[in-house]
Amino acid sequence: MKVSLISLFLILALVVGGCATKPETNASVERQELKVDPEILYALTVSELFEDRLPQADGSSLLQVQFAVDVHSNADLAWKVTWFDDTGMTVKGVGEGYRKATLITGQTRYFRATAPHSRVASYQLHLREPQ
């Protein structure tokens, strides 16, 4: 009697445990690697976006991102790379601000950014027009 009661209790516990809501671990929206604000699209086209891992002497590697823009019209550009580790959490860089560049018609400009830590696994590049 006692054994069957314990067994029933264990089965119930397992069923209830299985029904428990699992914590949300995945992003609800897939993150874009490149985000370009519509306001700046009239002035440029992103023609290249590369990423590479730089091998380090201690066996680690650093993510490096390079992008190129073809300029159609004189404009100011603000850009920023946000870094993420393999769990999707942000990794802090040196500063939080956007980097600024002045673009001239006909130019192809190349920009590069290096991840602040070897645990960086992905990134998001945001291009916008400074207000």
Binding site: Q56, L62, G93, V94, G95, G97, R99, A113, T114, P116
Partner: peptide, 18 residues
């Protein structure tokens, strides 16, 4: 911030601090 960002990224990319 600009100067520090450029310096740190360049130091890390160069491997000089590894």
């Amino acid at each position: 911030e600009k100067a520090a960002t450029e310096a740190v990224e360049d130091m890390l990319a160069s491997g000089a601090v590894v």
